[in-house]
Structure formats: C-alpha cells, structure tokens
Amino acid sequence: MSKITELSQLDLNQTYSYADYLTWQFDDALELIKGKIMLMSPAPNVLHQRISMSFSGTLFSYFHHKKCQVFAAPFDVRLYDRKKSILANKDIQTVVQPDLCVICRPELLDQQGCNGAPDWIIEILSPGNSKREMKIKYNLYQEAGVTEYWLVDPVHKAIHQLVLDDSGCYQIMKMVTDEDSIFPQLFPDLIIEVAEVFETWQAQQD
C-alpha cells in the first residue's frame, strides 16, 4: 500500500477506520465521523483560544492530584456505541478532537489518546464548527455515552449544559449567561463563574 502523505490521495466518499487514520502522514486537521472524513476548521481564533485556556486553567487546578484527568485539543478521542465493548482500531470509525475533555477511567487512556467516551466534554462554538458541534457531535456523544456535554457560545456569552438521563438521552440542565455561575453535575463543588470565562470577550469590546 502506498503512503498517504497528501489529503488529496484520499477519497472523501470512502469509509475509513481509525487504523487507516493512524497511517496518514499529512498535516491537514480532520476528524473521522462514522468512517467519513470531516475536515476541521482552520486554527481557532484568539477568542476561542482564550476561552479554552480559561477552562484549561480552572480544570487543571481542580483535577490536579485527582483521579480524573483533563485534556485539550489536539487529542484523539475514539467513539462508538456505548453498548459495545472496547473496539480494535480497525473496527473504530469515529475519532474526534474535543476542545476539552475530562476522563475519569484510566483504562480508556493509551498512547494514542482515549479509547471510549470521556466523562465530560466541552466544545467551544465558532462560525466554522457550530453545525457540527450542535448536531453531529450531539448525536455522537449521546450514542457513545458522554455523561456531560457543554456547548460554549462565545457570541452570546452563554453555556448550554447537557447531561444524560437514565434512558441515555441528553437533557438540558442549564442554559446560563455571563451573569450566572455553573457547575458540572459530575463535580458539584467545581463552581465556574461564567463572566470569568468570557472576560476576554468583554476586554475586546471595550
């Protein structure tokens, strides 16, 4: 098999596995969704990065010396139906790179990233990824069993908190703005002041 060193060598209509993904040797950022290649947006803008760093600092401090670990993109997360056991690379057809994820089961971690559903995922919306995060990834994370999923909307300075119910479906627990505080259902003592998450946005407007 010839080396894949350019995205143009791949057929975007073909279905690929994570085993294929590992052999590709090019710099284009992409995710694999149900075997289909999904090109990622260009590098996140400054506001996106500032919000990500704000969360990263808070979560790193909270989880330091705890069992759960926090990871920021780029970081491969392999997903599949939560009803299935851990799969081999050749059987996995979805790999995503959440902006931030918290993993409390060390057995899911290996040299490549996370093999299975993180406990908590945070995605920061941008013009290039809103549809993917709000629809495609919503369904992926629900199917895979990501217990808690936050969508962060920089434009409206809002956070949407979704949590799996007993039937395995997401329910909106909270929709908060920069006048509120919020905490993950999984870690109720982790209080996050929403205004602090978006303070860089306000600085840009002044």
Results as ranks from 00 to 15, higher is better:
Ser56Ala: 15
Leu47Gly: 07
Ser54Tyr: 04
Ile33Trp: 11
Pro44Asn: 05
Lys34Glu: 11
Tyr62Arg: 01
Pro44Met: 09
Ala43Asn: 08
Ser61Met: 09
Cys68Tyr: 03
Met53His: 13
Leu47Ile: 15
Arg50Thr: 08
Cys68Asn: 09
Gln69Cys: 09
Phe60Met: 11
Tyr62Lys: 01
Ser41Lys: 00
Phe60Trp: 04
Ser52Tyr: 06
Asn45His: 15
Ser61Gly: 05
Val46Tyr: 12
Met53Tyr: 11
Thr58Arg: 10
His48Cys: 04
Tyr62Phe: 14
Pro44Leu: 13
Pro42Asn: 07
Pro42Lys: 09
Lys67His: 15
Cys68Glu: 12
Met38His: 13
Gln69Asp: 15
Ser54Lys: 13
Lys34Ala: 00
Ile37His: 00
Lys67Asn: 14
Asn45Val: 02
Gly35Thr: 05
Ser56Gly: 08
Leu47Ser: 01
Gly35Lys: 07
Lys67Asp: 14
Gln69Lys: 15
Gly35Phe: 12
Ser61Thr: 08
Pro42Asp: 13
Leu47Pro: 05
Ser41Pro: 09
Leu39Ile: 11
Pro42Gly: 10
Gln69Ala: 14
Ile51Lys: 03
Leu59Pro: 01
Pro44Tyr: 10
Lys36Val: 02
Ser61Ile: 04
Lys36Ile: 03
Cys68Trp: 06
Thr58Ile: 15
Met53Leu: 07
Met40Ser: 06
Met53Asn: 12
Met53Ile: 10
Gln49Lys: 00
Ser41Met: 09
Ala43Phe: 12
Ser41Tyr: 00
His48Pro: 11
Phe60Arg: 08
Ser61Val: 03
His48Lys: 14
Leu47Thr: 00
Arg50Lys: 12
Pro44Ala: 11
Cys68Gly: 10
Ser56His: 03
Lys34Thr: 00
Lys66Trp: 11
Arg50Glu: 13
Ser56Tyr: 02
Val46Ala: 06
Met38Arg: 06
Arg50Leu: 14
Pro42Ile: 09
Thr58Gly: 01
Ser52Asp: 12
Phe55Asn: 02
Ser61Glu: 14
Leu59Gln: 01
Gly35Ile: 03
Asn45Arg: 08
Ile51Asn: 01
Cys68Gln: 04
Ser61Ala: 14
Phe55Val: 05
Arg50Ile: 07
Lys36Tyr: 03
Leu39Lys: 10
Phe55Cys: 08
Gly35Ser: 14
Ala43Met: 11
Val46Arg: 08
Lys66Met: 08
Asn45Lys: 10
Ser52Val: 15
Ile51Leu: 08
Thr58Glu: 04
Lys34Leu: 02
Leu39Val: 03
His48Leu: 15
Ser56Trp: 02
Ile33Ser: 05
Ala43Arg: 12
His65Lys: 09
Phe55Trp: 11
Pro42His: 10
Val46Pro: 01
Ser41Cys: 05
Ile33Met: 13
Ser52Gly: 15
Leu59Gly: 01
Gly57Met: 10
Leu59Lys: 00
Gln69Ile: 11
Arg50Cys: 08
Gly57Gln: 12
Ala43Trp: 07
Arg50His: 12
Asn45Met: 06
Met53Glu: 09
Lys66His: 14
Ile37Asp: 05
Lys66Leu: 15
Ser54Trp: 03
Cys68Met: 13
Met53Val: 14
Phe55Arg: 06
Ser52Lys: 13
Phe63Gln: 03
His48Ser: 13
Gln49Met: 01
Ile33Thr: 11
Leu59Tyr: 02
Leu39Met: 03
Ser54Gly: 09
Phe60Cys: 04
Leu59Trp: 02
Phe63Ile: 05
Gln49Leu: 09
Lys34Pro: 02
Ile51Asp: 03
Phe55Ile: 10
Leu59Asp: 01
Gly57Glu: 08
Cys68Arg: 04
Met40Phe: 06
